[in-house]
Amino acid sequence: MTTTAVRNTATLAWRTLVQIKHNPFELFDFSVQPIMFLLLFTYVFGGAIADSPGQYLTYALPGIIVQNLLFATLNTGVGLNTDISKGVFDRLRSLPIARFSPLAGRIVADVIKQAWAVALLLGLGMVLGFRIGTGPVQVLAAFALLLGFGFAVSWMSVLVAMLVSSPEKVQIFGFVLLFPITFASGAFVPVDTMPGWLRAFADVNPTSILADAARGLLSGGPVAGPVIQSLLWGAGSLVVFAPLSVWAFRRRI
């Protein structure tokens, strides 16, 4: 990517972010919704699943962060499809900018929003009683892993956005896919409490693996295996869906 393309991408990413100033509801999915999930899971299920909400929070917070991260990737697809449907991309094409800058700018902006959501959940979790059991390096590694995985998975949402006709269809596809893989996982409960057939799925579910990796980096525990597997899942998603998304983008724009 040339210097001009990088500058174009940064400008369009800023365009997406500055919209929050005029429409604060843009941050709803990245702020209010994560807080609601955190409070509900901690105080509704915490006492039933663990000895206390605080003890459950130690286990569940990394999983809640992962769940929110995956659902937040839908915003990339919804935003892109909305811009295309409203003709924003047609207007941008008339400008002397790199062709893929609008696509790249949207993705970069949403990664920044995801970083905000991860920091918000971790900060609120610490207020509620979560304690980091590792050091600054591990915490930064957890942020990098989570955001890198979110970036890779967001290309799936981009592909769907390029193939369907409305933002609502992006959301429907996302919920149909994301609900099973987030809840049928070890994000919220240990997988050894599940029936054998479901545990077999949860053990290889990337949501479980990423939650275990984040749990190890933030609270302590096994790290190498879950981190390596998470990187492999993320790389696989990127290799498969990024080229398909670019191909679909070229056909549509």
Rank of each mutant, 00 (worst) to 15 (best):
T2H: 01
T3N: 14
V6S: 10
A10E: 08
T11Y: 14
T11H: 12
E26W: 10
L27N: 07
D29Y: 02
F30W: 07
Q33W: 06
P34F: 02
I35P: 03
I35L: 13
L39Q: 08
F41I: 13
F41R: 06
Y43N: 06
Y43M: 10
G47V: 13
A50W: 01
S52M: 02
Y56S: 13
I65F: 11
I65R: 00
F71K: 06
F71V: 08
T73P: 01
N75V: 12
V78H: 09
L80F: 08
L80Q: 10
L80K: 07
T82V: 08
V88E: 12
P96C: 06
P96Q: 04
I97R: 02
A98T: 03
P102W: 04
G105D: 06
G105E: 11
I107R: 13
A109M: 06
A109G: 07
A109V: 01
V111W: 12
K113R: 15
W116L: 12
A119H: 01
G123K: 05
L124V: 14
I132N: 00
I132F: 02
G133W: 03
A142D: 05
L146Q: 04
L147V: 05
G150K: 14
S157T: 04
A161F: 05
A161Q: 06
M162C: 11
L163F: 01
L163A: 07
V164Q: 06
V170I: 03
Q171H: 09
F173W: 10
F175H: 00
L177F: 13
F179G: 05
P180D: 15
A184M: 15
S185V: 14
P190M: 01
D192N: 14
M194A: 14
F201S: 02
T207L: 07
A211G: 12
D212Y: 06
A214Q: 05
L218W: 10
G221V: 14
G221I: 02
A224L: 12
A224F: 15
A224P: 09
I228Y: 10
L232G: 08
L238D: 01
V240T: 08
R250A: 07
R250S: 10
